[in-house]
Structure formats: C-alpha cells, structure tokens
Design a protein around this nucleic acid. Structure first.
Lengths: 247, 247
DNA sequence: TCACTTACTAAGCGCTTGCTTAGGAAGCTA
DNA sequence: TAGCTTCCTAAGCAAGCGCTTAGTAAGTGA
C-alpha cells in the first residue's frame, strides 16, 4: 500500500516494459523450446527457465529470484511458498525480493507473463508458418507439446497458479492465454476451409487439441517412458485425427 | 501432534471406513453424475456435492464443513483458504472443524477421497459394461466428461490441490487416480484386440483421452456455450478418433 | 429429577507470514 | 581520498494462521 511508486522495483518494471515492447530475434525459437543436447533432464527445466528469463533481459538479481520462485511455486504452489523460501533458494536475504519486486504476487506475474509471452511467440510462428493447415497444426501441436514437456514445472505455474494473481494481472494473463487458443482455432478454421479437416465445431476441436498439450504438466515428469519427442509426435497425430484430417 | 487418537474425529473416520468397505447400490449411477432436471447450473454444483457426501454417509455437521471447504478450495485453493473461511461459510465457529476432523488437511483428503471413490465407481461401470469396446469407450468418455463438467469445482480440487495432502493420503489418492487410468487403458487394449481400434500405443492413447476429460475443470465454467451433453458427445467422438476406431 | 450424551462455542496460544525501515559494504569516478 | 552508486542485509512489526482447551446449552433415557 505504501509502496505505490517504489523506486526499487525498477528492474522488474523495465523488464515488464521490454516484455511488451521488444521482440527478440526469432531465429531459433524451436531450438530454444527444449534443453541443450546432453543436459540432464531434471536440470534441463532450470536451464530452460534461465534462458527464458535471459530472453527478456532480467538482470542477474531478479533472475535468481524468478528462477527460485518458479521452482518453488511449481513444487508447492504460490500460497505454500514463503518469501523466505524463495530468498533462501536464491541465496539472498528475505528482504532482497523487495528490492526487485513490489510483492510476491508480482514475482508470480513476471514468471507467468514472460513464460506466456514466449509461448505465444512459439505458437504463432508455427500457426502462421508456410505449408498446409495439416502441416501447421502438426508443427504447432508438436512444438507446444515439447514446450509443456520440457517445461512442465513452469507449466504448472502458468496453468494452475494464476488464480493467485491480482485482478489486473489476471486480465493480462488471460488475454495471452486466449491468444494461444485463437491461434489454434484459426489453423483449424483454415483447414476446414481448404477441406483438409473434417470437423463440425472448430471451437470444440481447438479446446480438445489444446487439452492434449496443456494437460501434460499435470501428469508428466522428467524420465517418463514417453520422451518429449515421442509425445510430441503422438499428440500431433492425435490432433490430426481429432480434426478429421483427410489423408 | 498431541491429537493422535482424538476422540472427536470419529465421524470422519467412520465415513472413511464406509468409504472403503461399503458400495452403495449402483442402480442409477449415471443419473447421479449430473444435477436434477430443472436445477440451476450454478447451484447444481453444490447439489451434486451434497448428494456425493450423502452417498458416503457423512453426518450433517461434517457434511456442511465438507461442502463449504470444497467450494472454497476450488475457488481459492487449499492454502489460500483459512479454517475460519470454511467455518464461516458452513455457519459454524472456527473450532467446529476440529470437532469433526483432525486437521484442515483431513478435510481436503475426505473431499478428494470420496469424489474419487465415486469417479472410480462410475468409470468402472462403463468400462466393464456390455457392448463393444467402442460402445464402452463412448460411454466412459461421455460419463466422465459429464462428471467433470457438472462438478468442475470439486474437479479443480481433485486435480490441482492434491499436492497439499500428507504423503500417506497422497499415496491413497494416487492409487485411486491410477485405477481410473487403468480402466481407460483396458478398454483401449480390448479394442485393439478386437481390431475395433487402430492405435500403436494404448498407454499414450489412454493418457490423451483422459486429458480430454480431465482438462475440463481448467477451462470450463457453468454457462459455457458448450453444454455438458454437447461436450460429452464431442469428447466421445474425439476419443474414438484418437483410438482410430474403424467405422 | 438427574446423570449422560450430543453438538457445538468463546477465548486465546504460539508461531509464521508478507513486508518495511534504516543502513552498510564494495566498487567506481574524479 | 571523497563522493556517489550499486547491491544487498539485519532486525523487526502488525496481522493472520492452524489448532487447543475448557466449557456450555439443549436434548435424552431411566
């Protein structure tokens, strides 16, 4: 309340601005979805997050806090995580969090917003790519499945912790989530138009196909017998079947 | 800690015993999945919960607390809900909760356990029913979708709040969840055996089909343009397509 | 009438929470 | 060396938390 225009939340605010304004070079979006070859699966989650927060130019201090918070929020949930937990995991004092962020809730918002901003980029690239609607749907489902599989931890946060956001932040996040749904829906509508797909209700089909991809963080854990690649291929094939793709 | 064999947690313990021992007459399981005809959609969620807790013989006191807690856990999450919230919503004093339950965590466990016990019953009835594998898969997906749609609130709790359970309770709950997955998987395996279905990986197919049904509480809210019936039909058709049902 | 049971509540304890305030050490610039 | 900036911490406050203890009003059975 007394912290309305706190001078010390600048790093986060700058990053927030850059989140909206700047679009980093999209040369290798697909490569960035997953971990580097050879990196351990478990560590891959943290490494992917490090890269994500790096993309949006968070300085080292905020980045350590965001990384620690994302892991804790995923494992225990927002309300079960204390600011002391986050600070300890980041190797900082409890007060450090408030040097970079206005509140614990803002930490959550930064995590969710940057994750979703990247997701929208990745999905849009595939949805608006060249090729037939079937090709675009395949690419989209594969890349989204890879993303949720490799990043199942932060996926948990984006999907199941957003109710802890303030109303304003929730509006922002809901808009980004709707954007992803819209992109999927458009590919299906296009496919119906070209008679590549045969399905009555494109809205319901979009929801079902998104469910395949977005339900992953609920049950997947690193080391599952289905590798991210296998799961991406399976979901892509299942999506084509749901859409009634004509062979 | 000091409450190891508290005499006042008897109501819950008795209900827990009956939860495991007794199987109520399954005459009209399907009818019980949804609300009574004519009841408002929003109230239907509370009415369905009332019926559920009635099935498992919770006395009126515990029942009021379970109902209030289920609603609050669904809307705000376990950790964001206080015992005072629950008691106030139930019209009781904060201490009343501890007359019937050992802890707030036990309230959560009772909600999740009774919900899942009923889910297993409903799904098992469809999975082991008469008819071809395609008929059984259709019935299973339709009834499970109706269940998650009509009960999206408590669905939220069962699916996304279980990490707040104690290790012992979590083991119990995970076993029940696995039972549901097993039932779906078996129908698909049967269908592959009879050549009704054409799919390489029955495990992955079971996961995908369950995702259609279980992702519902994440996005569905009463009043959505897709009615529970429409959604049940759509998901049943989508499940057949995923399984590669031969027409 | 009186012992007993049922179904709760008033009051509050000990602890943890998110967050604030005031300040300090280390490094850079001139 | 002096002044300034950067990056962070020690200490603690007010509020709220889960849960306990001791007790009471309203029935019930003999």
């Amino acid at each position: 309340m007394t912290n309305e225009a706190a001078p010390h939340a600048e790093a986060a605010s700058q990053a927030e601005a850059s989140l909206q304004a700047e679009s980093p070079q999209a040369e290798s979006l697909q490569a960035e979805v997953g971990p580097d070859v050879g990196s351990a699966a478990a560590n891959g989650q943290a490494a992917a997050l490090e890269r994500l927060f790096g993309r949006y130019h968070f300085p080292p201090g905020p980045r350590r806090i965001l990384l620690a918070a994302a892991t804790a929020f995923a494992e225990r949930g927002f309300h079960a995580t204390t600011t002391r937990d986050i600070a300890a995991q980041a190797g900082l004092s409890p007060a450090a969090l408030y040097v970079y962020f206005r509140s614990k809730e803002e930490v959550l918002h930064q995590i969710v917003a940057s994750t979703l901003a990247f997701t929208v980029e990745v999905v849009a690239t595939e949805a608006n790519g060249p090729g037939s609607p079937a090709d675009r749907l395949t690419g989209l489902v594969r890349v989204l499945t890879l993303w949720t599989t490799y990043n199942s931890q932060v996926g948990h946060v984006v999907l199941y912790q957003t109710s802890a956001l303030s109303p304003e932040h929730l509006t922002d996040i809901t808009a980004k989530q709707r954007k992803v749904s819209q992109l999927v829906r458009q590919v299906i509508v296009d496919g119906i138009g070209t008679r590549d797909f045969d399905i009555d209700d494109p809205g319901a089909a979009a929801i079902a196909i998104l469910s395949l991809c977005l339900d992953v963080p609920r049950w997947y854990h690193p080391g599952h017998r289905l590798t991210p690649q296998k799961l991406g291929d399976f979901n892509a094939a299942a999506a084509l079947r749901i859409a009634g793709a004509t062979q």
